[in-house]
Design a protein around this nucleic acid. Structure first.
Lengths: 118, 118
DNA sequence: ATAATATGGCACCAAAAGGTATCATGTCAA
DNA sequence: TTGACATGATACCTTTTGGTGCCATATTAT
């Protein structure tokens, strides 16, 4: 019994880097689909879609289930959790950024001679 | 006057897809740095780091400011906002997923002591 | 001015990525 | 059984990517 392997962050980010794959995810969020149904939505060959689906599965973003002669592709949104966690680290900075944005905007003078050298 | 151009989602996702670039972002979150200072942190040549920084800038994730003969690279966490927004669409699904996960987990061998938060 | 420093730019390279076409295999329906 | 259907698996191609090395240019320190 193969447990849904936990993908590393890299394979998930890699899977998300392609626009077609992100569109596939949106499509699958609306209804799980066979490969053929996915192919019908995009202007590339089945071979290309197949590759995308494999990469999405490697990234943990979908799961593929056999149903007769079809393979049903289902969104696995929990894989986005690790991405979200990674992003959350930066939230503190973008909060600061929003706070400082107002003062920083017109103040283009290099008032930051921070020079840390060990 | 060139406003900080709003990068499209694709260039941001693309910038995030490389592990070295993600590490650079973490490094820059701690202190803005010249190119040379970034180079010192990684085991690749300056040319490679330079390319990474350009891609990060294209993704809106950093800004590059000239200071004398140096180029100061500064984290621009606000670019992560668009990524975050994209992810948020899927939150509804992964909430469902969490809800179903609980029942799924209880029917299986506890292989994953991960806490769910939120 | 001159040398050291910091970076830009370019040519080049191997590997990965995205895509196609083709053939093979498993499954369903008649 | 047999053909149609859905997919798997390859081989192949082109472009992109991540990387290197080298030379040019702009600043800074002496």
């Amino acid at each position: 019994m193969k447990a849904a392997r936990t993908p590393d962050l890299q394979s998930t980010f890699r899977a998300l880097a392609d626009p077609t794959r992100r569109e596939i995810l949106v499509f699958l969020s609306q209804h799980e689909s066979s490969i053929g149904e996915v192919v019908d939505q995009f202007d590339v060959t089945r071979g290309a879609i197949k590759k995308h689906l494999v990469i999405l599965e490697e990234g943990g973003l979908i799961s593929i289930h056999t149903r007769g002669r079809e393979r049903i592709n289902r969104l696995e949104p929990s894989a986005l959790h690790s991405v979200n966690s990674w992003l959350q680290y930066f939230e503190q900075f973008w909060d600061n950024n929003l706070r400082n944005l107002k003062t920083a905007i017109e103040q283009r003078t290099p008032t930051n001679p921070k020079r840390k050298k060990q």
